[in-house]
Amino acid sequence: MSSTFTVGDLIDRLTAVGPDTPVCLAINPSFPFRHGIAEVIVVNDALGRPTVYVTEDGDQQGPVPPEVTVAAGWHEPTEAPRRPHTGIAAQ
């Protein structure tokens, strides 16, 4: 597999889900947040080769779910610590 993610790679992954499925960007492995997509823009580099840019819409939509960060290799799987029961009832 190429180290560059291509349009073909993206098409292959997207055709595995329904066409009405929402698409978001997961950005920043250190502080992962979900962002909406604004535009897909194609420009040519100095050698005339096209590159596709997926732009975000500026709308930070909340944290990326843990299963996404784990699947992306950004974080290790973790579980919330267990809290001991104190036996104190609310009054």
Rank of each mutant, 00 (worst) to 15 (best):
H75S: 04
A72R: 09
P50E: 12
S30W: 15
A38P: 00
I37S: 00
V7I: 13
I88W: 04
I37Y: 02
E56A: 09
G48L: 14
T51W: 10
A38N: 04
E56F: 11
Y53K: 05
A90I: 13
V40A: 15
P66Y: 03
D20H: 03
E76I: 07
E79K: 07
G73L: 04
L14S: 02
L47C: 06
R83I: 04
L25Y: 01
D45S: 08
D20S: 01
G48C: 09
D9P: 01
A46Y: 15
R82C: 05
W74T: 03
H35R: 13
S30I: 09
V17D: 12
T15S: 09
G87V: 09
V70Q: 03
R82D: 09
R83Q: 03
L10H: 00
P29L: 13
D57L: 08
P77Q: 11
V54N: 02
A46P: 03
V54Q: 06
D9V: 12
Q60L: 11
T21Y: 05
D9T: 10
W74Q: 03
T21P: 00
G58H: 05
P29D: 04
T69Y: 03
G36I: 01
A26D: 03
E39M: 07
T78R: 12
V17I: 11
T69R: 01
P81V: 11
I11N: 00
P29C: 04
T78E: 09
P63M: 07
V54M: 11
V23H: 02
G62L: 06
H85W: 12
I88E: 12
P50M: 14
V42G: 07
H85C: 06
T21L: 07
E39A: 12
P63Y: 11
L10F: 14
W74E: 01
T86V: 13
F5A: 05
A90S: 14
V52A: 12
E79G: 06
V43I: 11
T6W: 12
A38W: 06
F33I: 02
G87S: 11
A90Y: 09
P63V: 06
F31L: 11
D57C: 05
Y53D: 07
D57W: 09
A38V: 02
G87F: 15
V54R: 06
E76S: 05
G58K: 04
V64I: 15
I11H: 00
A71K: 13
V54K: 04
F33W: 10
D12S: 13
L14F: 10
H35K: 06
L47M: 14
T51D: 10
F5L: 15
P29S: 11
G36D: 01
Q61I: 09
V42D: 09
S2N: 13
G73Q: 14
W74M: 02
I88D: 02
I37V: 01
A72H: 03
T78C: 06
A90T: 12
S2E: 13
E39Q: 08
T86E: 15
Q61C: 10
D20W: 02
R49K: 15
F5W: 14
